[in-house]
């Protein structure tokens, strides 16, 4: 067993999941991989297992937050020191992972965030999307007190403290932004590192107009509520 676990939530990603697992194991052979299949109805689980991942099959679809948290609970139970999140749709480049992991091992922050905007990278996005990101950045900056450039990045390495925190509480959906404020409120540090972003290989982005509005309202509300809490996490 290695000391770092990659958590990959996957919902019907049979075409890409094996490639993602492969590319991670090629880039960093010294990590374990858990694929949390969130009630997939295709061959996601089999493909992932064949590629060499440990597969947890949720019998009911829990949504992205519930699926990811399953990975963190598994990491906590098995005593992993670091947990890594990377999107299963192939947007994130695992070649950056050794660098992120090294930063985490050196204790540069409780969470190392793979960011698209720290330095100039090849990534481009639409105008409305950039507007939304700027809005979120401002919001997070107000809540956290220091700037975070890529607030919606789902590419990250966290240490044991955060594994334990996420095991007891993890946002239900659209977790990226809320997590930043949650960590800040629990006195944990975030360190951003530039990474390359690739175009999606398969599948559709889950963002459309109606969802974007829901996203903005939900995230704003979540951040606002987070600020009203003393310390966010308690066991029930």
């Amino acid at each position: 067993m290695n000391d770092a676990l990659v958590i990959i939530p996957a919902l019907n990603e049979e075409k890409t999941v094996a490639a993602v697992v492969d590319s991670i194991l090629c880039a960093v052979p010294t990590v374990d991989i858990v694929v949390v299949s969130d009630g997939s109805t295709d061959r996601t689980a089999q493909e992932a297992r064949a590629a060499g991942a440990f597969v947890i099959n949720l019998s009911v679809n829990l949504g992205i937050g519930g699926a990811v948290q399953t990975g963190y609970r598994y990491a906590k139970e098995r005593g992993y020191q670091y947990a890594i999140q990377i999107d299963a749709d192939g947007q994130h480049d695992p070649a950056d992972l050794p660098r992120l992991l090294e930063e985490a091992r050196q204790g540069r922050g409780d969470m190392i965030l793979g960011s698209r905007y720290v330095e100039r990278t090849a990534y481009r996005s639409s105008r409305s999307r950039r507007m939304g990101m700027i809005l979120l950045s401002t919001l997070v900056r107000l809540a956290v007190g220091y700037p975070i450039k890529d607030t919606t990045s789902g590419y990250r390495v966290v240490n044991r403290r955060i594994i334990e925190l996420f095991s007891s509480y993890y946002p239900f959906d659209y977790p990226e932004v809320e997590v930043l404020v949650l960590l800040h409120r629990n006195h944990m540090t975030i360190h951003e590192v530039a990474v390359q972003m690739k175009e999606r290989q398969a599948g559709v982005s889950s963002i459309n107009v109606r969802k974007s509005i829901y996203y903005m309202v939900k995230v704003t509300l979540a951040v606002g509520l987070e600020l009203l809490r003393k310390r966010a996490v308690e066991e029930d």
């Binding site: 949390v36 440990f54 597969v55 947890i56 099959n57 949720l58 019998s59 009911v60 829990l62 519930g66 948290q69 399953t70 609970r73 598994y74 139970e77 029930d236």
Partner: peptide, 16 residues
């Protein structure tokens, strides 16, 4: 809901 989610998670980990 919170309890159901936790149950599903625990069972899935156990089964795996």
């Amino acid at each position: 809901t919170k309890r159901t989610v936790r149950l599903v998670q625990e069972i899935a980990i156990l089964k795996a």
